[in-house]
Design a protein around this nucleic acid. Structure first.
Lengths: 159, 159
DNA sequence: CGGCATCCTTAGGGATACTG
DNA sequence: CAGTATCCCTAAGGATGCCG
């Protein structure tokens, strides 16, 4: 009962949306699977091949991501073959796109020797796409223009 | 020589900036440490307490993040105390902010029961800040407006 | 060929005790 | 208070082999 991954105490860690998100996509392989799903992969073999993950890990991740509602399975059948599953992003899964784009961006900037094989563009307009911080008034926000406001009412005190 | 973490083959995985980024912030604890650094923590005990991580893990992560240039150590000395280290975000570390904000956002939207204790606002303007996808022409870009362009020249074939 | 079961190695992380 | 050292358990993931 000792062991890992249960945060020790945690009114802080608990209910933190970032930590909660990392509980879903907790590992590198999940990100890689999602990346390929964004890039258009749908079949088991594509995921395994393009991510470089082993088949067992690929299978485990696909199931977990489907179970968490980020991917949905869609049975398909090629003539003369048995029924197989295609995996497609759900809205919930696709909503992680800003995270992935932001990760890629950071790598492009700071990790020498890493360069995405895919460029993301705005359809039609053709301009490259980046993840940016914006305020609700649409101002671009840089790191030093941030203000942190601690929320009051530590939940269940909403009078 | 078997074992983990060396991607099996990987012209795909290799040089992917997202994977490269995840090689730096590969684990949950690294994200948690960075979160607290963004929230203003600088001292060892703050990190350990606010993240809920054990001291050994906190120490390991702080060292790794400093070694990777995301945090810098700054010796300080309180009167009558020995010299201690403060840990502050570097520009490289602060540049991960969009990733963290995007993760938080996703959790806020999709993970019921998770709600950040801190709201991020634009200083002065006061409006809440979100991570968004924008193209270079400043159009907001939604998931279905994306176009993927495979880069030509698989490195070292630039002519 | 797609997919799972088994096995083994390594990395992540808590508990506890200890040091300066 | 600011960490280290040790110990032990769990999660991640590759290799291999099996099965429909």
């Amino acid at each position: 009962m000792a062991g890992a991954l249960e945060p020790r105490e945690g009114w802080v860690a608990e209910h933190c949306p970032m930590a909660a998100t990392l509980d879903i996509v907790r590992n590198r392989s999940a990100f890689l699977i999602l990346r390929e799903a964004f890039y258009g992969a749908t079949r088991f073999e594509e995921f395994a091949e393009l991510t470089g993950l082993s088949e067992p890990v690929t299978a485990a991740r696909l199931h977990e991501l489907a179970g968490d509602g980020l991917l949905e399975r869609e049975p398909y059948r090629e003539p003369g073959q048995r029924t197989r599953q295609a995996y497609r992003l759900t809205e919930k899964g696709a909503d992680l796109l800003p995270v992935l784009v932001a990760l890629m961006q950071w790598g492009d900037r700071w990790q020498r020797d890493s360069r995405s094989r895919v460029e993301i563009r705005h359809r039609g307009c053709g301009a490259p796409v980046t993840a940016q911080l914006r305020c609700a008034h649409d101002h671009p926000v840089s790191g030093d223009e941030l203000e942190l406001a601690v929320r009051r009412g530590r939940r269940r005190t909403s009078p």
